[in-house]
Structure formats: C-alpha cells, structure tokens
C-alpha cells in the first residue's frame, strides 16, 4: 500500500464523523434552529453505542442505541426551544454540558473495556483491486452511509416538496405560519434528525475510529462540525467538501511531521477555525447577504402571539 493511498484512507476516517454530524446540523439550521449541542449528543451517542454494543455483543445494536440516544437528547432540546421557546444558544450550550456529563455517567462502567472495530466492507474481487480497491470498495459502512446522506440531503432540500417547506420555514417562520405550514412540527423533525446524525457520528467514534470508550473522546469534533456548516454556507455538497478538507488538513500535517518536513503543527491544528472565518469573510465581501444563513436561524417561534 502506497503512502498516498494510506493518507487518503486516513483522511476519509477522520472526515466521516465530521461529515455525519455536520449534515445533521445543516438540516436543523435550514429549518431555522441553531443547535449548539452536537458535541454533547455525539458524546452520549458514543457512550451509549459502545455500552450497548459491549452488552449485546452486536455492533448493529450499538449503532441503533447511539442513534436513539442522540435522538432522545435532541428531543429534550426540542422540548425546550420549541415547546417553551427558550433561547436556542443557551439551550444548546446546556445540552452540550449535559451530554458530556451524561456520557461520562453512562460510560463509567465501560472505561477500560476493549472491543474490535466494526470491520470495513469487503467485496471479493473489487476490494482487492490494486490502488483504488481499498479506497472505493473497502471503506467502513459508515463512510458509504455518510456519502448517501450527503446526496440524500442534497436531493431532499433542493428537489423535494418537504425540503422546500423546511427551507421556507427556516427563511421566515412567520410567513410560513401564515401560509399554514406546521412550523413547530417541521422543526421538531429536523431537530430529531440532527440528533440522530450526531448520535451516529458518536457511534462511529467509539465503534470504528477508536473502538473504546473514554470520557471526552469527542474532543471538540462537535464544534468543528458546527464550524463546518457555516464554512459550507449551508450547502450539502460544500459540507462534504469541507469535511474532507478539514479532515485532510489534520491528517496531512501529521504525515508532514512523520516525514520530518518542518511545518508548524499548531498552525494546521487551528486550520478548521481559521478556514471558517476566512470563508465567512470571503462570502460577505463577495456579495451582500450571501453567507447563506437561513433568515430565521436562532429565532424562537411562538405561534399566534
């Protein structure tokens, strides 16, 4: 296996959790809700996924549990911001803090437990192809799911009636409501979808990427996913590109170091955040109001008041 192929493989593993979590958040934000709780939901997903997989002995059960856990936590968030119209920023931050604490509690009994990673896909013949076999046909199932998600969301937001409804509510919930669109119900579904994605990303961390549980193992990936949505100016394919760019930057700098090519490693560690700020600057200098942020993003909605 050549070094280039090895680098690409590692880039994909590093990018996948960012991609899954960011795609979920993209849908939430497109519906006009800002959920800053990704980090917490990912952590709970990672803990529940690992716990369930260890107890049941089945990776599939683990993944299912992680998705449900992310979903359940996002339901709490939905109750607060939709049901009680609380401040979304404060509720999201609270969700992260709660999720990190809860994950430690759930995972406490599983610290120090080892598990085999969910194996990558293997298709006889195709996976063995020289050069591209492993890259195209030998990835983790999560990778294919994340790519399908990206394309699915692209189609849903751009081409489907339900997607247009969701976007219009995100742009202006008052108009949407006046048209008779079920603002709160659509937002509820979006929030739950975002929670499920964050849970799935968490499962990837604790079952594939580094198959063990330890408190704090998300290590800020939820925040990078949030930055990624802004960086991508709320467009699914740009999220895909951005996830691979952010993942690629991390992995490439590690390889540069291993190859003893002098490069300040701290600079590339800050890359995702710097890139997001730069992207924002470029976008807002280019055209007015072109950042692509949904119009009602972050604003609470109380029907008929």
């Amino acid at each position: 296996m050549g070094v280039t192929e090895a680098i690409l493989l590692t880039v994909i593993t590093a990018a996948t959790p960012l991609l899954i979590a960011a795609l979920g958040e993209l849908v939430v934000e497109k519906a006009g809700v800002l959920n800053l709780g990704i980090e917490g939901m990912m952590a709970v997903g990672a803990a529940c996924g690992f716990a369930a997989a260890t107890l049941s002995g089945s990776s599939l059960v683990g993944v299912g549990a992680a998705v449900l856990a992310g979903l359940a936590l996002s339901a709490v968030f939905a109750l607060l911001v939709l049901g009680l119209a609380t401040n979304q920023v404060a509720s999201g931050l609270a969700l992260t803090i709660m999720g990190l604490g809860l994950s430690g509690l759930i995972g406490a009994g599983f610290v120090g437990t080892n598990r085999d990673a969910i194996p990558p896909v293997y298709i006889p013949g195709l996976t063995d192809l020289p050069g591209v076999g492993r890259l195209l046909f030998g990835e983790s199932p999560f990778v294919y799911v994340s790519l399908a998600l990206a394309l699915g969301i692209l189609w849903f937001l751009g081409r489907s009636r339900a997607g247009l409804t969701l976007r219009s509510i995100g742009e202006n919930h008052v108009s949407g409501h006046a048209l008779g669109l079920p603002v709160l119900r659509v937002r509820l579904y979006a929030i739950l979808f975002g929670g499920a994605c964050a849970g799935l990303a968490g499962a990837y961390l604790s079952l594939v990427y580094t198959p063990f549980w330890s408190p704090g193992m998300t290590a800020g990936r939820g925040w990078i996913a949030l930055a990624l949505v802004v960086f991508a100016s709320w467009k699914p394919l740009r999220v895909l590109f951005g996830a691979y760019l952010f993942g690629g930057a991390t992995v490439l700098q590690l390889h540069l170091q291993a190859a003893s090519i002098g490069f300040p490693s701290q600079a590339l560690s800050a890359f995702p955040y710097v890139a997001t700020i730069l992207a924002l600057v470029v976008m807002s200098v280019g055209e007015r109001k072109a950042t692509g942020a949904p119009g009602s993003l972050g604003a609470p909605f109380v029907p008929d008041r």
Binding site: M1, F212, G216, A219, R221, H255, S260, S265
Partner: peptide, 26 residues
Amino acid sequence: KIVWANTWFDPGKEADAAKALLDQGA
C-alpha cells in the same frame, strides 16, 4: 520519527498520528 498531536487526549487524532507513523515505516 516524532509527531506532535498538540493534545493530551484526543483518541481520533492520536490514532491518526499513529497511522501516519506506521504508514511511513515505523
């Protein structure tokens, strides 16, 4: 061969660092 991960604890990044080192012959 040394790789600075710039973190005490980030399993994913530590794993990637180890992979990079293994890929380069360690």
